[in-house]
Design a protein around this nucleic acid. Sequence first.
DNA 1: GTCTATATGAGGATAGAC
DNA 2: GTCTATCCTCATATAGAC
Lengths: 195, 195
Amino acid sequence: MARKQGSHSDITGPKLRKAARRLIAQHGFAAVSMRQIAAEVGVQAGALYNYTPDKQSLLFDLMREHMDELLTAWDVEEKGGSALERLERFTRFHIRFNLPRADEVFIAYMELRNLSPENFAEIEKLRRQYEAGLEDILRAGEAEGVFAFTDLRIATMALIAMLTGLNTWYRENGRLSVAEIETIYWDLVRKSVAV
Amino acid sequence: MARKQGSHSDITGPKLRKAARRLIAQHGFAAVSMRQIAAEVGVQAGALYNYTPDKQSLLFDLMREHMDELLTAWDVEEKGGSALERLERFTRFHIRFNLPRADEVFIAYMELRNLSPENFAEIEKLRRQYEAGLEDILRAGEAEGVFAFTDLRIATMALIAMLTGLNTWYRENGRLSVAEIETIYWDLVRKSVAV
DNA sequence: GTCTATATGAGGATAGAC
DNA sequence: GTCTATCCTCATATAGAC
């Protein structure tokens, strides 16, 4: 039961991740120092190395955690049905999942170049997996005859870019609710691949 | 006629901009040092300060030059006509202009946070100008009754995000020509705002 | 215009005391 | 687990010689 005085591993760990996420999203990985992160956590820089072997691992862990959560959440959401239903579900899921995670999404897209080659490959694999989810839906819809597009791969990338772009201008407490935004985007998505 | 030996201002200047553009796009502004840039130019770091007052100005000049070229080029291209013609022209222009400028576009989107507040405001103004070009077209199309969308601002941002996203996956010598890509995207754009 | 040399500071990471 | 102190490297920017 007794816990050593000064032992805060269950507090400092999450605080470290949270501070790193916020600071990296705001200033960029290269521009943020371990000292800055430590200051936000409330410890000295040296103490951070009890929680991460180095700065690179810190970035990698943030990105992998984000991608894992994304894939797991989509796995739960994906429930079959017609291609049209599945595409609507994907559209709304993507918006609902990404909107409250502005920092994570920003980092996942902007800091790829700061990953070591091995770490980059791993994150890239997870991203491909997610893209494959949408690609499957579009392929199914084409087979059903409810979707039409010239190129499957381009349609996939174009839709993801369109939906993710929302994060660059969305601000909480804006003039539209998330539900309204979902519906507006669903209208654009649906028509863009309509027969 | 005579030129002092060792005077290379007309060579080193452009070389500096070119090296900075490439390195910043690859590694990020914060991660690139003046020494790295100088090495690529072929001079010592101190010599760069004959061409730029500081690192921040270097970034700002790159971004402003890019936005100026973009706005000037679109100004030439924009020739009136029906909203449908104008939207097709915008779509093809955006792709044709941005595709060969991967580094510039990347920097323009990724390094905004590394601009000083004043510089940020100026670049942001130019970006808004460009967005307003598309917004005008969509508004005109709605008035003509040839376009339909729920929200003008979202439609504008969604289309720009979709088109610009192309830069993240396009590789020269891929399986599709630029002309083919233009047509494929135009199909997606046209349908997404169709009545 | 470019060089070398340097001022001045900050960076990541580690060692050893508590 | 955290602290202080420190190593070592690298950064931007400037000064003055050529």
